[in-house]
């Protein structure tokens, strides 16, 4: 049993090592991109931002509007409308501290993580990565770097939108259903929405974006030559991303709060 645990730990360390190496290589490639010009890479980056960010925006907005409304409804049911400041505080704590970065990352994993892993896996099996290399275009620079940057940008921006919309949803519910005025609602929001809260939320989304994109790229590139590995790469990418995102969320929360 001890041997099995050791083997699992070694595998985990190797996995983290591979992820770090891929991220480091992407970082090195970004320096080369700065030196050589980023025209084609920038195009891939924009596409990634579009697919991960713009196309997911509607889902994120609706979901977080409802989350804001639900939190406020439950809080008013629990504590009454006289507790508007407490309600706002809970809303900020739940949404900005936790749900904003976490749920956004989960949605991005479900939508774009699988897409990235399966797309890269298909490209690798079809020999397209070798074709790129034979054209003198390093695959990490052209395929991986813009995907990592694009997905990270998308997660950051989506999280911001998600948190803003959630607070707006909370206010709309408080105002329309319970007649709570904006000033009273703000009293519970503004004092707690400190730069530190926003900074930690930003840090979480940054880490999640980097992590999810790197894990999914790594899974996509890890396939051999069989088509059956394509869906496996997608599934593994999603499961590993989810696990790591939750683990890191706990780690960041425990460290910084």
């Amino acid at each position: 049993m001890l041997t099995a645990a050791g083997r699992q730990a070694t595998r985990g360390l190797l996995f983290v090592g591979e992820l770090s190496m891929l991220l480091f290589r992407a970082f090195l490639e970004s320096l080369a991109v700065v030196r050589q010009g980023f025209r084609p890479v920038f195009r891939v980056y924009l596409k990634q931002v579009y697919f991960t960010g713009v196309q997911a925006l509607a889902v994120i907005l609706v979901l977080f509007l409802l989350i804001g409304a639900l939190i406020i409804t439950q809080m008013f049911n629990l504590a009454g409308t006289g507790s508007a400041s407490l309600t706002g505080k809970v809303l900020v704590w739940i949404v900005v501290r936790e749900l904003g970065p976490l749920l956004t990352a989960v949605i991005v994993i479900a939508r774009s993580g699988t897409a990235i892993a399966t797309e890269l896996a298909t490209m690798k099996i079809n020999g397209e990565i070798d074709v790129l290399e034979s054209l003198g275009i390093p695959a990490v620079r052209y395929l991986i770097l813009p995907r990592i940057l694009g997905m990270t940008t998308a997660v950051l921006v989506l999280t911001l939108y998600a948190e803003a919309v959630s607070v707006a949803g909370g206010f709309l519910t408080a105002s329309l259903a319970w007649g709570v005025p904006l000033e009273q609602f703000n009293q519970g929001i503004v004092p707690f929405l400190t730069p530190r809260e926003i900074g930690i939320s930003f840090l979480k989304s940054l880490v999640f974006g980097l992590l999810v994109s790197t894990v999914c790229c790594r899974q996509g590139l890890s396939v051999g030559g069989s088509l059956t590995q394509v869906p496996q790469a997608g599934t593994k990418g999603v499961m590993q991303s989810l696990l790591l995102v939750f683990l890191l969320d706990v780690a960041i929360t425990a460290t910084l709060y």
Partner: peptide
Amino acid sequence: GLISNLKVLENVTLPLLY
């Protein structure tokens, strides 16, 4: 040997742009 997620024109312009 085309890149499957690039359109025909993008496939041909890719090495030149790069």
